[in-house]
Structures are given as structure tokens and as C-alpha cells.
Design a protein around this nucleic acid. Structure first.
Lengths: 254, 254
DNA sequence: GCGAATTTGTCCGTATGTATT
DNA sequence: AAATACATACGGACAAATTCG
């Protein structure tokens, strides 16, 4: 094949990995692949060459390639599936958490098409938890809305939110019609509200989430528990949403 | 089958679950158990009565009890293990994320004993990512410190942090000696610093995390990526830490 | 280290009341 | 009004994990 005059030339493309420099081969390979991915040579969703091919190309053993790939997998850049291959992952959506967190605005700002759907709603008596968070007495009627969100037709989140019924009657109907909670609230005369607190935890996706969000079992979801209040401080909604962990990255700028 | 027309009492303690009220039995049982847990009748770590015992006590079938327990498990209140039993979980540590996030202060404020340990450190050239985050040029020497933290001897987090070497020489030694990064930085003349950005994602724990944090495989970890800067804005450290997802709850108050 | 006992997890099936079509 | 679907509740059997003598 090609004959390079460098320190070593074991493969056709091996100009980048040089032995005996003090930098381990797997680190060099990882850096090179990361660079190629960042440069768009392997765009999101693309399949990387199979490990044996890479080992040929870099002139190293397959295990050395695997060590490099492990670094990228750890960073969340690629994902390997036995039998299928190794694929470049979509970069996660940056999801800033702040006092005015709105799904559609965040997704639009990221240049993607937001979509929200009301999966169902019902009026129910507030249990101890909902009552505490909304500052109501247990048993007060609240409206529970179950919904999911997508960005560019990719499922992002799924959750339930609770609203005081007196303030938000028929919110579910308007939400279903408009597809946007912000707009639905606006038509009810609630022009603005702000986030009072966000609590974040994580766990493996449950069956329902696997179903609604098109996940494979065992995947992690970020669970966001949030309280929104009206401008005068009255609790407006409390809810818990599950975000597909590897499709979003929550960002907090204090 | 049952010869009761509407209200019945099947068990010795069944005064709380009433049939034919329109509220399903499993919901009533879930609410009752949740109340008992909240009231301290079953404190954190305690074992609940076995399912067969509960089914006797409430006068319902074991399946009905299981459905109620599933609700509490979903809420993160209990955890069942085949062969062992069903246990009340420790409430997660509330971990506020703000401009002055410090592990030891947060844990102390929660009435627990913080503990940090340096697992290892080395000087290495900054790769593209570290260089970008710390505002250095690729290849500049940085100090990498690997550490883990505990609260009341329970592993909480594990991560790697990178520091510009010129500013932080021997930081690892002082850290190992003091067990506190804040104090170690103080002895190097860096009295204060603040969080510039926190990025949060989640995934299943990898092998290393399972090992260091005493987890079972498949558990979720919250991955916090953070940039701390000195008061003049100079990047001081960048790092990624994995938090055991069901032992912490990140709290953001905008 | 083995086996029995305990306990949760998962299946099979049946019956019944209530909504929806 | 009949047919259908769904949620609730019960009964039994066995697998899988854990504990303990």
C-alpha cells in the first residue's frame, strides 16, 4: 500500500498514530475518531467502520481500537450494539433550566421542531403529595394532564402535571387543541408564570416510559419534578416528567 | 362469591379498606402504607411485612397488595428484592446546585457526615475537550484528580476533575491530606470560586462506578459536568462526576 | 458448600362490574 | 339491547433470588 516515511506505517491511513511518542495508541485513535466525528466525517446516526476495519486502517490490534471506542462510548459520542455495529449518536438537546423554562421555546431555540401532545386528562382528588406541592388541602379537586413531547419527531419527555381545578378548568381541552401548554394557559388568562423549584433525579425507564418514548428497557431517564407559580407566588402546577437521558442535557447557569 | 353487598370487613385490621366505595382497593392500600411510612411507623431501612402478611392484614388477595406496593416503588418510597423482602428506602440527599455548590457544605447542612477521598491523580496533556472547557490550548499540562465522596459512609459520587497545572501544582497532595477540595484550594491561595455552568445527564452505571460506588449493575447515575471559575472568571476546574441517582436529588432554585 | 425455607416475581386462569361501541 | 373492551379482584402454581442452618 502507501509507503510513508514516518516512524511507522502499518496501515494505509496510519499517518496519525505514531508509536513510541509516549502517547498511547488508543488515546491517539480516540482523539482522531472524535475529531472526525466532530468534523462531520461521521455524522449523527452514521455507522462507524467495523472494528476489524478500523484496526486495519490504524495498523493496530482490534483490542487497541476497542479501547479507543470505549472512550468515545463513555463520552456518549457513539453507541455500539452487538451484531449491528457502532453508531454516532445524536448530540443531546441542551435544555437550560431557569425561571422561565418552556419546552417549545427551548427546542425552537435549538433549531428543532417542538411538538406536544396531551395523552389524557382527568379530574381527581389531590393526594397528600399533590396537595402539599400545590398548597391545597388533601382531597381538593385537581386536574391531572398526562403529556409527551417531541423534538423533530423524536420523543423527548413524558410526564404528568397537576393543576388546581378552580384556576384551570378545561385547560386540558385547550391544551389538546393548541398543542402548547403555554398557549393554553394564556387563553385561560394566565399570561406568565415562573419556575419556583426543579428537582432532578434519575432511574431506569419503567414499562410505560419504554412504551411512550420508544426506548429499549434499561435505559435511563432523567426525572424532573417541578413547581411553577404565578407571578404572585400562587402554585400553578406541579408535575413530574421523565426525559430520555441520552437525548437531553440539562444545563444550569447559576 | 362474597356475600357482602357493599361495605365489608374481611381482615382484623381492614377497617381502612372499604369495598364498594368507588375507590379501588389497591389505591386505598397504597395511600395507607404511604401514610404509615410518612408517619414513621416504617422508618427508612425498615422491612415491610411480607406480601402474604399484608394481604391477610388488609383482607385482600396478594395481587392486590402487589399492585399497591408497585405504586410506592414507582414513587421511590420502597424497594423490593426477591428473597429478601420489601424495604423502605432512605430519602435522597437534597443537593442544591448553585453558584457556590460545595459537597461538604451541602452534606453537612443535611446533618450528615461528609467524606472525600482522592483515588488517584496524574499530570497529563489536555485533550481537546479539557482544553476547550478550561480555555487552554490542547496539550497544555493539566492535573487530573480522581475522587469519590461519601455521606455517612454511603458512597454518593465519583468523578474526575481537571485543573490547570500552573495554578494548582501539588493540589492532589494537599487534597489527599485534608480530604477536602475546598480546603486544599484554600491552602493554594484560592479562597473562593464559583460555578459557571452545570450540565446534567444520566445513564446506567458503568463497571467502574459499580465497583467504586458499591452499586448493582444497571443502576442509574446522574452525570454532572461542571465548570468552576475563579472570581475573575478564569477557569479553575472542569470535571465530570457520577452521582448515585437514587441517593441524591439535585435541586435547582432559579 | 448444600439444601431447605422464605420471599418476591411472573405466569396461567376465572369472575364481575362498568363503560364504550 | 347486545356485544365488546377494560379495570378490578381473586385463586393457584412455579420460577428466581436470598437467607440460614
Amino acid at each position: 500500500m502507501d509507503s510513508f516515511d514516518h516512524v511507522s506505517m502499518t496501515g494505509p491511513d496510519a499517518g496519525d498514530v505514531t508509536r513510541g511518542t509516549g502517547v498511547s495508541l488508543w488515546k491517539q485513535i480516540a482523539a482522531r475518531l472524535e475529531w472526525q466525528i466532530a468534523a462531520g466525517q461521521y455524522p449523527a446516526g452514521a455507522r462507524l467502520p467495523v472494528e476489524s476495519e478500523l484496526s486495519l486502517r490504524f495498523g493496530v490490534n482490534r483490542h487497541t481500537v476497542r479501547r479507543a471506542l470505549a472512550v468515545l462510548a463513555e463520552k456518549g459520542l457513539i453507541e455500539a450494539t452487538a451484531g449491528r455495529g457502532t453508531f454516532v449518536k445524536e448530540p443531546p438537546i441542551r435544555y437550560p433550566i431557569g425561571p422561565r423554562t418552556r419546552f417549545s421555546e427551548i427546542v425552537s431555540a435549538g433549531g428543532r421542531e417542538p411538538f406536544g401532545r396531551c395523552l389524557g386528562s382527568q379530574v381527581e382528588p389531590a393526594d397528600a403529595e399533590v396537595a402539599r406541592e400545590l398548597g391545597l388541602t388533601e382531597g381538593t379537586s385537581v386536574l391531572c394532564i398526562e403529556s409527551m413531547h417531541e423534538a423533530d419527531s423524536v420523543p423527548i419527555s413524558f410526564g404528568r402535571a397537576y393543576f388546581p381545578l378552580d384556576r384551570c378548568r378545561d385547560l386540558d381541552l385547550v391544551y389538546s387543541a393548541t398543542g402548547s401548554l403555554t398557549r393554553a394557559l394564556a387563553t385561560l388568562g394566565i399570561q406568565d408564570y415562573r419556575r419556583r423549584e426543579t428537582r432532578i433525579s434519575a432511574r431506569a425507564a419503567n414499562e410505560r416510559e419504554v412504551d411512550v418514548l420508544s426506548l429499549t428497557p434499561g435505559r435511563s431517564v432523567l426525572v424532573l419534578e417541578r413547581v411553577d407559580v404565578e407571578l404572585d407566588g400562587t402554585p400553578l402546577q406541579w408535575g413530574r416528567s421523565s426525559f430520555v437521558a441520552d437525548r437531553v442535557q440539562l444545563v444550569i447557569k447559576p
